[in-house]
Design a binder for these strands. Sequence first.
DNA 1: GCCAACGTTGGC
DNA 2: GCCAACGTTGGC
Length: 152
Amino acid sequence: MKYWLFKTEPDAFGIDDLERDGKAGWDGVRNYQARNFLRQCAVGDEVFIYHSSCKKIGIAGIAKIVRTAYVDNTQFDRHSNGYDIDSTIDNPRWSTLDVQFVKKFPTIIGLSELKNNPALEEMLLVQKGSRLSVMPVKPSEYREILRMAGRS
DNA sequence: GCCAACGTTGGC
DNA sequence: GCCAACGTTGGC
Protein backbone atom coordinates (compact mmCIF):
# COMPACT_ATOMS: atom_id res chain seq x y z
CA MET A 1 0.00 0.00 0.00
CA LYS A 2 1.19 3.47 -0.89
CA TYR A 3 0.41 6.90 0.48
CA TRP A 4 -0.37 10.12 -1.33
CA LEU A 5 -1.34 13.72 -0.81
CA PHE A 6 -3.96 15.44 -2.97
CA LYS A 7 -4.40 19.19 -2.93
CA THR A 8 -7.76 20.82 -3.29
CA GLU A 9 -9.28 24.23 -2.78
CA PRO A 10 -12.01 23.69 -0.18
CA ASP A 11 -14.02 26.60 -1.58
CA ALA A 12 -14.48 24.39 -4.64
CA PHE A 13 -14.34 20.93 -3.08
CA GLY A 14 -13.02 20.06 0.36
CA ILE A 15 -13.11 17.39 3.03
CA ASP A 16 -16.65 18.35 4.04
CA ASP A 17 -17.88 17.86 0.50
CA LEU A 18 -16.16 14.50 0.35
CA GLU A 19 -17.68 13.47 3.69
CA ARG A 20 -21.13 14.48 2.46
CA ASP A 21 -20.77 12.69 -0.88
CA GLY A 22 -18.89 9.68 0.49
CA LYS A 23 -17.14 9.15 -2.80
CA ALA A 24 -15.81 11.47 -5.49
CA GLY A 25 -14.08 11.48 -8.84
CA TRP A 26 -10.79 13.36 -8.58
CA ASP A 27 -10.84 15.12 -11.93
CA GLY A 28 -9.23 18.33 -13.16
CA VAL A 29 -5.58 17.36 -12.70
CA ARG A 30 -3.77 19.16 -15.54
CA ASN A 31 -0.12 18.75 -14.75
CA TYR A 32 1.89 15.90 -16.20
CA GLN A 33 3.88 15.05 -13.10
CA ALA A 34 0.75 15.05 -10.96
CA ARG A 35 -1.06 12.96 -13.56
CA ASN A 36 1.74 10.41 -13.60
CA PHE A 37 1.50 10.02 -9.85
CA LEU A 38 -2.28 9.77 -10.14
CA ARG A 39 -1.86 6.85 -12.52
CA GLN A 40 0.32 5.06 -9.98
CA CYS A 41 -2.40 5.09 -7.33
CA ALA A 42 -3.78 1.64 -6.48
CA VAL A 43 -7.05 0.62 -4.89
CA GLY A 44 -6.64 0.79 -1.11
CA ASP A 45 -3.91 3.42 -1.15
CA GLU A 46 -4.48 6.14 1.43
CA VAL A 47 -4.57 9.82 0.61
CA PHE A 48 -4.19 12.94 2.70
CA ILE A 49 -6.64 15.60 1.62
CA TYR A 50 -4.84 18.95 1.71
CA HIS A 51 -6.66 22.28 1.67
CA SER A 52 -4.88 25.03 -0.26
CA SER A 53 -5.63 28.67 -1.06
CA CYS A 54 -8.01 29.09 1.84
CA LYS A 55 -8.29 30.32 5.41
CA LYS A 56 -6.94 27.23 7.16
CA ILE A 57 -4.24 25.73 4.99
CA GLY A 58 -3.18 22.18 5.79
CA ILE A 59 -4.15 18.52 5.89
CA ALA A 60 -7.83 18.11 6.59
CA GLY A 61 -8.35 14.36 6.58
CA ILE A 62 -7.96 11.05 4.81
CA ALA A 63 -9.47 9.35 1.79
CA LYS A 64 -8.70 6.10 0.05
CA ILE A 65 -8.50 5.07 -3.58
CA VAL A 66 -11.49 3.00 -4.66
CA ARG A 67 -10.96 3.09 -8.44
CA THR A 68 -7.70 3.46 -10.32
CA ALA A 69 -7.10 5.97 -13.11
CA TYR A 70 -9.52 6.26 -16.00
CA VAL A 71 -10.22 8.90 -18.64
CA ASP A 72 -11.11 12.32 -17.26
CA ASN A 73 -14.00 13.37 -19.47
CA THR A 74 -13.88 17.01 -18.37
CA GLN A 75 -10.95 17.41 -20.83
CA PHE A 76 -13.45 17.04 -23.71
CA ASP A 77 -16.02 19.39 -22.20
CA ARG A 78 -15.84 22.77 -23.88
CA HIS A 79 -17.56 24.34 -20.89
CA SER A 80 -15.23 22.92 -18.24
CA ASN A 81 -12.11 24.77 -17.02
CA GLY A 82 -10.41 21.44 -17.52
CA TYR A 83 -11.14 21.56 -21.24
CA ASP A 84 -8.09 20.68 -23.32
CA ILE A 85 -8.47 21.50 -26.99
CA ASP A 86 -5.44 19.38 -27.89
CA SER A 87 -6.66 16.18 -26.23
CA THR A 88 -8.47 13.62 -28.38
CA ILE A 89 -10.87 10.77 -27.61
CA ASP A 90 -8.46 8.34 -29.27
CA ASN A 91 -5.52 9.56 -27.23
CA PRO A 92 -6.78 11.20 -24.05
CA ARG A 93 -4.23 13.19 -22.17
CA TRP A 94 -5.71 13.41 -18.67
CA SER A 95 -6.88 10.91 -16.09
CA THR A 96 -9.10 10.89 -13.04
CA LEU A 97 -9.74 8.33 -10.32
CA ASP A 98 -12.24 7.74 -7.52
CA VAL A 99 -11.65 8.30 -3.82
CA GLN A 100 -13.78 7.46 -0.81
CA PHE A 101 -14.04 9.44 2.40
CA VAL A 102 -12.23 7.85 5.34
CA LYS A 103 -11.98 10.49 8.04
CA LYS A 104 -11.84 14.15 8.81
CA PHE A 105 -9.24 15.24 11.34
CA PRO A 106 -10.62 16.95 14.47
CA THR A 107 -8.52 19.96 13.53
CA ILE A 108 -6.62 20.70 10.34
CA ILE A 109 -2.91 20.04 10.59
CA GLY A 110 -1.57 23.42 9.51
CA LEU A 111 1.12 23.90 6.93
CA SER A 112 3.25 25.73 9.51
CA GLU A 113 3.02 22.72 11.87
CA LEU A 114 4.16 20.47 9.04
CA LYS A 115 7.01 22.84 8.21
CA ASN A 116 8.05 23.07 11.85
CA ASN A 117 8.26 19.29 12.31
CA PRO A 118 11.87 18.16 11.74
CA ALA A 119 10.63 14.64 10.96
CA LEU A 120 8.89 16.06 7.89
CA GLU A 121 11.61 18.32 6.53
CA GLU A 122 12.12 16.12 3.47
CA MET A 123 8.44 15.94 2.66
CA LEU A 124 7.70 17.10 -0.90
CA LEU A 125 4.89 19.33 0.29
CA VAL A 126 7.14 21.56 2.38
CA GLN A 127 9.87 21.98 -0.21
CA LYS A 128 10.30 25.48 -1.57
CA GLY A 129 8.19 26.14 -4.64
CA SER A 130 6.38 22.80 -4.43
CA ARG A 131 3.30 23.09 -6.59
CA LEU A 132 2.42 19.47 -7.28
CA SER A 133 -1.26 18.73 -6.67
CA VAL A 134 -0.75 14.96 -6.43
CA MET A 135 2.36 13.73 -4.67
CA PRO A 136 3.65 10.63 -2.93
CA VAL A 137 4.04 10.53 0.86
CA LYS A 138 6.58 8.29 2.54
CA PRO A 139 5.28 5.70 5.04
CA SER A 140 7.36 7.34 7.79
CA GLU A 141 5.83 10.72 6.95
CA TYR A 142 2.37 9.24 6.85
CA ARG A 143 2.80 7.75 10.33
CA GLU A 144 4.20 10.98 11.71
CA ILE A 145 1.26 12.99 10.38
CA LEU A 146 -1.22 10.49 11.83
CA ARG A 147 0.55 10.94 15.14
CA MET A 148 0.17 14.72 14.86
CA ALA A 149 -3.51 14.29 14.03
CA GLY A 150 -4.03 12.08 17.07
CA ARG A 151 -2.47 14.64 19.36
CA SER A 152 -4.52 17.57 18.16
C1' DG B 1 -3.74 41.62 -4.02
C1' DC B 2 1.19 40.62 -4.36
C1' DC B 3 4.72 38.01 -6.04
C1' DA B 4 8.08 34.02 -6.11
C1' DA B 5 8.42 29.72 -8.13
C1' DC B 6 7.29 26.78 -11.48
C1' DG B 7 5.45 24.68 -16.02
C1' DT B 8 4.38 25.45 -20.78
C1' DT B 9 4.63 27.60 -25.19
C1' DG B 10 6.67 29.13 -29.24
C1' DG B 11 10.15 31.81 -31.92
C1' DC B 12 14.60 31.26 -33.37
C1' DG C 1 17.47 22.61 -28.08
C1' DC C 2 17.63 27.19 -25.95
C1' DC C 3 15.32 30.57 -23.54
C1' DA C 4 12.18 34.64 -23.08
C1' DA C 5 7.51 35.42 -22.38
C1' DC C 6 3.55 34.11 -20.45
C1' DG C 7 0.10 31.77 -17.43
C1' DT C 8 -0.76 29.39 -13.12
C1' DT C 9 -0.15 27.96 -8.36
C1' DG C 10 -0.43 28.97 -3.84
C1' DG C 11 1.45 31.05 0.49
C1' DC C 12 1.45 35.29 2.66
